[in-house]
Each structure stands twice: as structure tokens, then as C-alpha cells.
Design a protein around this nucleic acid. Structure first.
Length: 257
DNA sequence: GCGACAG
DNA sequence: ATCTTGTCGC
């Protein structure tokens, strides 16, 4: 059951978030990051959680791995999870990251060579990156209004100034620090918001995300999104468990392919 | 106090 | 996140 966020939880999250930020590496650490076309990078992963409409506590967590630069899906892991933490803007990672860490661990167990780089949500990228020590990049479809960032007229004007694919402008907070970058990833007038996750600098992150875009949403995240939604759709059609009188017995519905 | 707020 | 069909355009 997902309840409102008690103040005690929020302050604990704030402390943990501050501690975790100390572990974030904001520079490039991989050899392929120095190459003009990222030569040497062979796999790019994406993660996502899709929720059931009326149910705040059940979701499908997905992790996909794509070839790079071909962007063909090589690996897919979808499974239902019981979400317990509430959604709080600015603290999304505490709700979603535990399931993503598990997915990464399964990946590393099954296909050790596949976990090269992950595209995740904006703030999720730092958490997941530090906890797994994998290179991560944050990608959001909408602007998180924090530290003075707002969808105001200035912001809309800056978006209009993004004329060509690859054009960017920095997201500078009131504190003066650059929190991320807005990127026109394709012909859509709506930009992507890119942030540093772990072990990738912002400039490299923007170039890399751009190179993963067939459409506005980078292919790894788009595939994770599509596949987790499809998994949920199938769940809705599977038989409902009816309470029985006899001894309880776990039955697993077969959901193959 | 009210509204705004990634997913 | 999710509720939702067609539709206009390249």
C-alpha cells in the first residue's frame, strides 16, 4: 500500500540523497567516451517502470539492452514488482531504483558483457549509477521544476531557439550550477532533458543520447517503455486469482514471449 | 495558505 | 505514470 510521505521519510531521503551525491562521478571514465563516434561502445541499456492505471502499488520494471550503434534489442527483462515507496517529485529514485538494481544484478549474472551503459530517468541515474557503479545518463521527457527551473516564458523561448537537431541549452539553477541540458533530439519541438548520472560528463551524455535517437525518445528507453507497457497489458488479460478454501498454493501464470 | 511538482 | 481516437503532416 502506498501512502502519503511522512516527514520522517522525506528527511531521511534528503539525507541519503545528499550522501549519495558524494559518490557521483561527473567525469568520463571510459575509453569509448573519448572516441568521436564512441568506438568501443557495444551495448546500451534502458530501464523503465510502467504502472497499472488504478493501482499505485503494482508496476512492471523493465531493463533492455541494445546493440550499439545498431540499436537492436539483444536482451529484455520484464517483471511485476510491488512498489511500496510513494511518488514524491524530486525523490523518484527512492521509489523505483530498488527494482532496477535487482534487474541490473540479474543482467550481470546472465549476460555479464551486456552492462556497458544505462539510460535512465533524470534523478534515477545518479542513484542507480552509484549503487551499481555502472556509467549512467539521466533522460527526462519533462522538466522537473526545482532550484528555480520552471516552464515559464523564458524557458519556452529557449525551447523555440532550438532550431536544429542536436541544439542544446543549459539548465542553470538559481544556485548557479548547471543541473542538466535541454536537447532537441529530433524534429519534435519538445526537447529532452539530459542530466549527468555517473561516470559520464554532461557533454558526452548529450552526444551519446543524441546518437541513440531514432525518434524523440532514445531507443533504449523507448524499448523499455514499450515492453513494460505491453507486459502490463498482458497481465490485465491473465486470469484473476480467486480466494479458495483449501490450503494456499502459489500458481504462476505462464507469460512467455 | 495554495499551487506546482521527473514517474 | 495513467485516462484516450482519430487525425494531420512529412
Amino acid at each position: 500500500m502506498t501512502g502519503p510521505p511522512p516527514a520522517a521519510i522525506l528527511s531521511r531521503w534528503a539525507r541519503e540523497q545528499a550522501r549519495l551525491k558524494g559518490g557521483v562521478v561527473r567525469e568520463d571514465t571510459e575509453e569509448w567516451q573519448k572516441e568521436p563516434s564512441f568506438a568501443g561502445l557495444e551495448r546500451v541499456g534502458g530501464v523503465d517502470l510502467s504502472y497499472i492505471k488504478g493501482d499505485d502499488s503494482r508496476a512492471c520494471a523493465s531493463l533492455v539492452v541494445l546493440s550499439y550503434p545498431g540499436l537492436e534489442v539483444l536482451y529484455e527483462d520484464c517483471r511485476m514488482v510491488a512498489v511500496s515507496a510513494p511518488y514524491v517529485a524530486g525523490f523518484l529514485a527512492f521509489r523505483e531504483v530498488p527494482f532496477l538494481v535487482e534487474a541490473v544484478q540479474r543482467l550481470q549474472q546472465e549476460e555479464p558483457s551486456y552492462s556497458a551503459l544505462l539510460l535512465t530517468g533524470f534523478g534515477v541515474a545518479c542513484h542507480l549509477g552509484v549503487l551499481t557503479d555502472l556509467p549512467c545518463i539521466g533522460v527526462a521527457k519533462n522538466l522537473l521544476q526545482v532550484d528555480g527551473l520552471a516552464r515559464d516564458e523564458l524557458h519556452r523561448e529557449q525551447i523555440r531557439s532550438l532550431q536544429r537537431e542536436g541544439d542544446t541549452f543549459p539548465l542553470t539553477g538559481t544556485s548557479g550550477s548547471v543541473l542538466g541540458m535541454a536537447l532537441r533530439s529530433c524534429n519534435s519541438s519538445k526537447p529532452l532533458y539530459i542530466s549527468v548520472g555517473h561516470r559520464v560528463c554532461l557533454e558526452t551524455a548529450v552526444r551519446l543520447v543524441q546518437s541513440c535517437c531514432r525518434y524523440r525518445i532514445p531507443e533504449p528507453i523507448r524499448q523499455a517503455d514499450i515492453r513494460s507497457r505491453e507486459y502490463i497489458r498482458k497481465q490485465m488479460c491473465s486470469p484473476v486469482k480467486v480466494p479458495s478454501s483449501g490450503p494456499e498454493r502459489e500458481e504462476k501464470a505462464e507469460v512467455d514471449d
